[in-house]
C-alpha cells in the first residue's frame, strides 16, 4: 500500500486534508476552505522519500456530500528518479476525496513530463485509483515523439 504523506499548505486557517484516498489511506473529511494548497503522496519503500504524486490548487471549497470544489487544480506525477512523468491541469473541477474521483464539464490539459505528448479537451472524469482519464468532448492530442 502506498504511503501518503499529505502535507497540505493551507491558507486562512482552513482545516482540509484530502486527495488521499487514491493512495490507499483514509483521510480526514474536508471541513473548511483552503487556498494555495499542496498535497504530496510518496512511493513505497525503497523510494519512500520520492514524491509520486503532487497535487496543488488555488482553492478548494467543501460541497455537500463530502465533495470539494477545486479551482486551478494541477496534478503532477513523478518517477522514482524524481523526473516528472505527467502534468494535468484543470481550471475547475469537483473532487470526491473518498472515491478519488474528479470530474468537470470544463477544460482539461494533460502533458507528459517532457512536454512532447499533450492532450486537451472539454469535460472529463478522472479516476485516481485506476489512473484512468476520460475526456468527453473535443479531444486534441499533439505528439512530438521521435518518428
Amino acid at each position: 500500500m502506498s504511503r501518503l504523506a499529505a502535507k497540505p499548505i493551507l491558507a486562512a486557517g482552513a482545516v482540509l486534508v484530502f486527495l488521499a484516498s487514491g493512495y490507499g489511506q483514509v483521510q480526514s473529511v474536508p471541513v473548511g476552505r483552503a487556498t494555495d494548497f499542496t498535497s504530496d503522496a510518496y512511493f513505497e519503500a525503497p523510494h519512500e522519500r520520492q514524491v509520486k504524486v503532487r497535487l496543488t490548487g488555488a482553492e478548494a471549497t467543501p460541497l455537500p456530500g463530502g465533495l470539494l470544489d477545486v479551482k486551478k487544480l494541477k496534478v503532477e506525477t513523478f518517477n522514482t528518479a524524481g523526473r516528472p512523468e505527467l502534468v494535468v491541469r484543470a481550471p475547475h473541477c469537483t473532487y470526491a476525496p473518498l472515491d478519488g474521483v474528479a470530474n468537470s464539464a470544463g477544460h482539461l490539459e494533460l502533458q507528459s513530463g517532457d512536454g512532447k505528448f499533450r492532450v486537451e479537451g472539454d469535460g472529463f472524469l478522472w479516476r485516481q485509483n485506476e489512473s484512468s482519464l476520460t475526456i468527453s468532448n473535443r479531444v486534441r492530442t499533439v505528439i512530438e515523439m521521435p518518428k
Partner: peptide
Amino acid sequence: PAPTEINSDAADFDLNARLAVY
C-alpha cells in the same frame, strides 16, 4: 519532424497501461 495531431470526439486514457483510446 512536425508533430502528429489527433482529434476526436472523446478519449480514454489508461495511464497504468499507457494506453489511449480515441
